[in-house]
Amino acid sequence: MEAGIVGLPNVGKSTLFNALTCSQAAQSENYPFCTIEPNEGIVSVPDPRLDRITKYIVPKKTIPAILKLVDIAGIVKGASEGEGLGNKFLSHIRQVDAIIQVVRCFEDPDVIHVSGQVDPIADIEIIETELMLADIQTLENAIGKAEKTARSGDKDAKVRVEVIKKCNEHLAADQPLRTLELNEIERAAVSSYGLMTAKSILYVANVGENDLEGKDPLVTKVREYADKAGASVVCVCAKLESELAELDEADRAEMLSEVGLDEPALHSIARGAYKTLGLESYFTAGEKEVRAWTIPAGATAPQAAGVIHTDFERGFIRCEVYTLEDLEEHKTEKDIRQAGKLRVEGKSYVMKDGDICHFLFNV
């Protein structure tokens, strides 16, 4: 699964993407559409639980979960009608699983805002409107074919027609589709359309170097907007994070200490994106490696095993599970087993975030 980073031109999203992926790409000039094709990058998801596990199970290597990010070029008002580079960029958003919208929450006369003034809520609404208009267009294009197929007696097409109408009514009320309740069958009926406002969203408030805690009134407005939308907000100073990304570990730690941060704010973005995508981690731990594996929330034990290898899911027998708290209390897997804390779970077991597992399988 992957998340797409979107925003108006010059809000700092490409700076943020480069910092997240430790990109050494040359700095672009300060003008819209400097990212012509979407850039892709893989980032690790920092997880302090890995450090806690390796205190007791010392591996040759530690492997965190990873997340794929796509930097999508700046969207402008009228994109759904072809303004700027228009639908070309909107099509890139259709392909991602969640959206990270960067909004500018700092003043800087040297960085031109495409709208002439810094107003993060207006920025959010411009992009939301463009995505809703594009979704309306997609659904209007789809309903004719769906109705024709439905008239032939196709039951799936009949469901699709009703869901399209339901979605269009919601969009006509100026509401994004992520706020529309659909059951599993209804979601499946329109899943192939890549409806953009149905995707989960994370807002990133790009703040100035003098407001790392995000106390500026502009950030407060973003938080209030996100609360109403059921979304999360992460504050980050893209300029500072870009500088931190270029430092070695020792210098980075010194700089973080100087500005009063415990860790780069980018870590919060990676974790926030992970959560926005509906993902969680389980761990495998041994002398060879301690590793975080990515699964969708609600995955069963066989599905989780299949992330390691399809044979593990196909030949799943059982899963041996313990918790990080068990490890910290008993120190070794042997002692966890002797204490009766090593659980044996079957095919119906729903994984819990942070489970430490061994899978038994036979093919």
Rank of each mutant, 00 (worst) to 15 (best):
M1R: 13
M1C: 15
A3N: 08
I5V: 05
I5C: 12
V6W: 14
V6D: 09
P9N: 10
N10F: 04
S14R: 00
L20W: 01
A25V: 02
A26H: 05
Q27C: 08
N30T: 05
Y31K: 15
P32C: 06
C34W: 03
T35H: 04
E40S: 14
I42V: 15
S44Q: 11
P48Q: 12
L50T: 12
Y56V: 06
T62Y: 04
A65E: 05
K68V: 13
L69P: 04
D71L: 13
V76E: 07
E83L: 08
G86L: 07
K88C: 10
I93E: 05
I93N: 00
R94C: 06
D110F: 10
S115R: 13
D123S: 01
I127L: 15
T129M: 14
E130S: 11
M132G: 06
L139A: 12
R151W: 10
K155C: 11
A157S: 04
K165Q: 11
C167M: 12
N168E: 13
L171F: 08
P176Y: 08
L177S: 00
L177P: 00
E181T: 15
S192I: 10
G194M: 01
G194V: 00
S200Q: 15
I201A: 05
Y203C: 12
Y203F: 14
V204F: 07
V207P: 10
G208L: 05
G208V: 00
L212I: 02
K215I: 13
P217S: 06
P217A: 09
L218P: 08
V219D: 12
T220I: 13
R223D: 04
R223Y: 09
E224P: 04
A229V: 06
A231Y: 05
V233Y: 08
E243R: 05
L244G: 08
D248I: 02
E249F: 11
E254Q: 12
L256T: 01
A265Q: 09
L266G: 08
R271A: 10
G272V: 03
K275L: 13
L277F: 12
L279G: 05
L279P: 04
F283M: 07
F283W: 07
A285Y: 00
A285W: 01
G286Y: 11
K288V: 09
E289D: 07
W293T: 07
W293E: 14
T294E: 11
T294H: 08
P296G: 09
A299N: 09
T300P: 09
T300Q: 10
G306M: 03
V307K: 07
H309D: 07
D311L: 03
F312R: 06
G315M: 03
I317W: 14
I317Y: 13
E320T: 04
T323K: 13
T323L: 02
E329R: 10
H330E: 15
E333L: 04
E333P: 06
R337L: 11
R343D: 02
R343H: 01
K347G: 05
K347F: 09
V350L: 14
F359V: 01
L360Y: 14
F361D: 10
